[in-house]
Design a protein around this nucleic acid. Structure first.
Lengths: 190, 190
DNA sequence: ATCAGAATGTGATCTACATCACGTAACCAA
DNA sequence: TTGGTTACGTGATGTAGATCACATTCTGAT
């Protein structure tokens, strides 16, 4: 599916934007292509944009003491990602985003998002909905972290994203679960 | 400060609502008072409302296997709380809310929130902002969970809410940190 | 086709935290 | 004042998962 159509259908599920208005809205999104392994956003960068995934798979991650990596989110088509804390507080990125596979994204600047939100009430509604979904998912993951052991969290993850198992290397799954790759490996045999 | 004034000032930081419009908006909020220990929302309940705290301190928590409690949020004045997953998905509550101290809250039904959001673009803007803040805070806490040991998380919590130390019993702080009360107790002596 | 580096598996050991067990102090309600 | 419940501290012991070490396979670039 084409980028424009994908975004349009994605928004249309929640908000109704007139066809001609959508053309205008879409003109603010900048298409970008990346190769596997390329960085979209790196720690320390000034963060201007958020990204809507058209194809491929991204990871948003944090690196501690330049040693351990924790993955906050795998971003698949129709998902949005960025370092939102940095984006809203206008601080340098602490979260990085890069490509697990080749990827196409649409880039929307924070400035344009705010402009569009104030021009189109329905778009503001859409973004409220989207953020709300993210908030609920994040709370759920937090609870799972407190409540479940690694094995259960692993099963939860695979139930939620069955594609992930074959798509991304195991050590990245470990980094999402917040567990060492060795421990994840041992889960299979038990 | 009066409930109405508190809410008005809270919203005014982000959105501009005309004085006469605010009267109308405020009429949808239902003031309620609770005593220390009272439940505002219990597991299994139908969830219709979210709550804006005027005074006192609430906790939003999850109980696992009817044994362990995990606190998702302490809600202080000007904070909002509810079981948002249940509220948006129209499912029974899995998260409960009750009062750590006597408390006054304003109750806003989901229906009224949606109605007001569609009537006032600025209010939709406010709620997008609010949810966004919650999302960012939740992601930050998730990272802290993956990255920090109990002692660091404890210090972070106290830095964020210095009042909490004297206001709430230690075993509730342990339930927020996701740690046993014994371990938390031992942190003091080390 | 070959070679270097990345990804994965697996054993041995270490450690932060949980759990169990018990004692003491604080806070109530009758 | 008293007796019961809740809060809190602290020792002994158990355990999930981390860390270290090394072997094996896979992958991608030349």
């Amino acid at each position: 599916m084409e980028a424009k159509e994908l975004l349009q259908q994605h928004i249309a599920k929640i908000a109704s934007i007139k066809e001609e208005d959508f053309d205008y809205v879409f003109s603010h999104f900048k298409p970008m292509s990346f190769k596997k392994g390329q960085a979209i956003l790196s720690e320390g960068d000034k963060v201007d944009c958020e990204y809507f995934v058209i194809s491929g798979c991204l990871k948003a991650f944090f690196i501690n003491d330049e040693i351990k990596m924790y993955i906050l989110q795998f971003a698949m088509p129709t998902w949005w990602t960025s370092d939102y804390a940095a984006l809203y507080n206008q601080t340098p990125a602490t979260i990085s985003v890069d490509c697990i596979t080749d990827a196409e994204v649409l880039c929307l600047s924070s400035e344009d998002r705010e402009k569009l939100c104030s021009e189109f009430h329905q778009l503001e509604h859409f973004f409220r909905w989207r953020t709300n979904r993210g908030y609920i998912a994040s709370q759920k993951r937090l609870l799972s972290f407190m409540n479940n052991n690694v094995k259960k969290r692993y099963e939860e993850l695979l139930a939620l994203y069955p594609q992930l198992y074959n798509l991304v290397p195991k050590h990245l799954i470990a980094a999402y679960l917040g567990v060492s790759r060795e421990t994840l490996s041992r889960l299979h045999s038990s």
